[in-house]
């Protein structure tokens, strides 16, 4: 048997070892993610749009004149004072809209806002759902019943009607929409899914082991249940981003959002000024196609990342 006299631990060596093993875990997961093939494609798309929208202020400040290129108030008097919308030119690579505003800069501005909307809505929503699901599963009984009834209400919630009513009463901003969506996912479907995951974790012997060790309810939820639900949460977050961005587009298109500029608004502008009808659809493609493509691509990007993470989170497909 081993000598029991305690030897002083070499803390530096320990630190190195911890770092080595930590990075190895990261590397292993990254390998799985890359192995999914679809994941890195998604990540590439997402990174592209992050850079795309992040370069907007630089684009505005360095190269171009904001008076011309502002997505909302810009107007290019020199080039096309009369004929707007105008098809792509060198100075307006994606043309201008019906008011003579540069569509590319609209896209750059909007995709940033839409990304933020998606991430805030999904992040806050899934975080909420994780807590709600874990707490409901852990305490069970009346607490569980309460949260599940709330979830039922959220699922049956007349979401569109409320937004219509709300937009009549006040200006619904992107942030408000994000909070609204976060509450909906946080207490609704996602919380039900994460709760069933938490229920599986709750009956594991390691939860009992923590209890024997004297762990409080808070300790058990926080350091045993939540960490085991979180990977699934993260997965659902990716899918929720997609949902949020689609919702924004749909709502803006229907005119329920009070936002100066967004991907949905670009298409809505084209629609309300009558450019999405009949043959004009093809002639004025630059008024709707780029915005539609950006929406689809961003959503696809997050969805692909989610599929890639699925490979990491659900070991079902893993071989030795």
């Amino acid at each position: 048997m081993v000598d029991t006299a305690s030897q002083q631990v070499d803390r530096a060596a320990m630190r190195r070892e911890r770092w080595r093993l930590f990075t190895r875990t990261l590397r292993d997961n990254w390998r799985l993610f890359v192995g999914s093939k679809i994941g890195p494609i998604g990540l590439g798309i997402v990174i592209f749009f992050v850079l795309f929208s992040a370069s907007y202020p630089i684009f505005m400040a360095v190269t171009h004149n904001p008076r011309i290129y502002d997505p909302v108030t810009g107007f290019d008097y020199d080039l096309m004072p009369t004929s707007n919308p105008h098809p792509p030119t060198w100075s307006h690579p994606l043309g201008t809209d019906v008011y003579g505003r540069d569509i590319l800069s609209q896209l750059m501005y909007s995709s940033g806002h839409d990304l933020l909307l998606g991430l805030i809505a999904a992040g806050a929503g899934v975080l909420l759902a994780t807590l709600v699901g874990s707490i409901a599963a852990f305490y069970g009984g009346i607490v569980d019943m309460f949260f599940m009834r709330v979830a039922d209400i959220m699922m049956l919630f007349p979401f569109l009607a409320t937004l219509v009513a709300l937009s009549a009463l006040m200006n619904v901003s992107l942030l408000m929409l994000a909070i609204f969506l976060a509450i909906l996912t946080g207490f609704g479907t996602t919380s039900i899914i994460l709760r069933s995951q938490a229920l599986q974790v709750k009956v594991k012997p390691f939860v009992e082991a923590a209890r024997v060790s004297g762990g409080s309810n808070f300790h058990i939820i926080w350091s045993h249940i939540v960490p085991n639900v979180l990977p699934l949460s993260f997965l659902y977050m990716m899918f929720s981003v997609t949902g949020a961005i689609f919702t924004e587009a749909a709502l803006a298109f229907l005119g329920f959002l009070n936002v100066r500029m967004s991907l949905g608004i670009i298409i809505q502008n084209a629609n309300t000024s009558g450019y999405l009808i009949g043959t004009r659809l093809a002639t004025y493609w630059y008024m709707w196609l780029p915005a539609g493509a950006v929406i689809s691509l961003i959503c696809a990007g997050f969805y692909f990342v989610g599929r890639g993470l699925d490979e990491v989170v659900n070991p079902r497909l893993r071989e030795r």
Partner: peptide, 29 residues
């Protein structure tokens, strides 16, 4: 008091390192 469980695969939180697992009772108390 302490307990040792039957299933060596299920009685440890898969997301914790051995350090966290062994130190848990110490940390809790």
């Amino acid at each position: 008091v302490q307990m040792i469980f039957q299933d060596p695969y299920e009685s440890m939180n898969p997301r914790k390192t051995l350090y966290d697992i062994i130190a848990e009772p110490l940390a809790v108390h």
